[in-house]
């Protein structure tokens, strides 16, 4: 199923936006964390700078987010992972409020209470969690709610290949299959569960095979390619909307950065990322668009300028925003 020109352009632009967002964050994150501005003897201080705490970036994994979210409506629910920016951006979460959240500012999605692993945007029906494997049960709940309300909405849970070894994965797949829920479970296999290679953690090569255990379709997308993800997700979303139940999709994707920023990546061979980047999914989609005659140098430059402007504006918004008053820490335990 070939996407429309409009969808293709959205996918391309969104991938560029995600990539620039993550690359910008990689630099901003380092601000204030390196000598000589930190405690003597340290090489890096995770708690310093304008964006403190852990940071997990998704450069390279853009096809998973856009290939799936291209099929979603505002009413559909997405639950992401500890590496959530690409999903959030593809689901339409405002980039400025998302960035402000990572800066811990009052204008952030959660008034600075969540940070980068805990982004909540009920308006765009996006949430995520810092706990591996935690995205699947709430996605079942959102799908169950849609069914109960008689809507044709779907819910997507994204998770990594490491999470496929969690009990929640199996519990949620069984529940979704049993109740024929409109849920799509999308596994991002980026080969590494932090540092442990999939071959060292998982008894089988493809997590899509696990779908058979629950009697649901399992689709393996072997290439880190937005169009291939788009095709697999299209069938799954259409099936779910029609009441055909859940689907498990596994995408072999590539993580270009560390598990977290500051990760020395001792577990992967030198030069691996360079090799992976030769198959960068963004230029390959760009090539496809040009072949379809919907992208040329002028349009490409215009898109990149637009994306650059949006990213710059978002980071500027976050920097300029005020911190919450310390006492606001006591609010929002209950509504």
């Amino acid at each position: 199923m070939e996407p429309s020109a409009e969808k293709l352009m959205w996918m391309y632009e969104t991938m560029l936006l995600i990539r620039e967002y993550e690359e910008t964050m990689a630099n901003v994150y380092l601000e204030g964390k390196l000598p000589p501005n930190i405690q003597k003897g340290l090489a890096f201080d995770i708690g310093s700078g304008p964006v403190p705490g852990e940071m997990h970036l998704a450069a390279g994994q853009e096809p998973v987010a856009v290939g799936v979210c291209a099929h979603l409506r505002k009413e559909d629910t997405v639950v992401g992972t500890h590496r959530p920016h690409h999903f959030a951006i593809a689901k339409g979460v405002p980039v400025d409020a998302m960035t402000a959240e990572m800066f811990g500012k009052a204008t952030g999605l959660g008034h600075g209470k969540g940070g980068h692993m805990h982004l909540f945007d009920p308006e765009h029906k996006f949430s995520c969690s810092g706990i591996v494997g935690a995205s699947l049960p709430p996605a079942c709940g959102a799908a169950l709610a849609a069914k109960k309300m008689g809507k044709d909405w779907v819910a997507v849970a994204f998770f990594g290949e490491g999470a496929a070894n969690q009990g929640t994965f199996h519990e949620a797949l069984n529940l979704a299959a049993l109740w024929s829920l409109p849920a799509i479970f999308v596994c991002e296999d980026n080969k590494y569960a932090i540092s442990v290679e999939k071959s060292e953690s998982t008894a089988i090569h493809s997590d899509a095979d696990r779908a058979a255990a629950y009697g649901i379709p399992g689709v393996a997308v072997a290439k880190n390619d937005a169009l291939e993800v788009y095709e697999a997700a299209g069938e799954a979303v259409a099936r779910a909307r029609k009441g055909g139940g859940p689907t498990l999709i596994e995408v072999k994707t590539d993580r270009y950065m560390g598990h977290f920023q500051g990760d020395a990546e001792v577990y992967r061979p030198k030069g691996e990322v360079g090799e992976l980047r030769k198959n960068d999914p963004i230029p390959s989609l760009g090539k496809h668009l040009r072949a379809r005659g919907i992208l040329d140098d002028g349009k490409d430059a215009a898109i990149r300028e637009k994306v650059h402007g949006l990213v710059q504006k978002s980071y500027e918004f976050a920097r300029q925003s005020a911190y919450p008053e310390p006492r606001e820490a006591l609010q929002h335990v209950f509504v």
């Binding site: 709430p138 709940g141 169950l144 849609a146 009990g167 519990e171 949620a172 069984n174």
Partner: peptide
Amino acid sequence: KERIMDTPISESAFIGAATGAAAEGMRP
């Protein structure tokens, strides 16, 4: 049984599903 639902012995799944359904406006 649409409103009084027996579940599998999968507490993480159905308690997590309760959270997810509540976020959508249901009252599980």
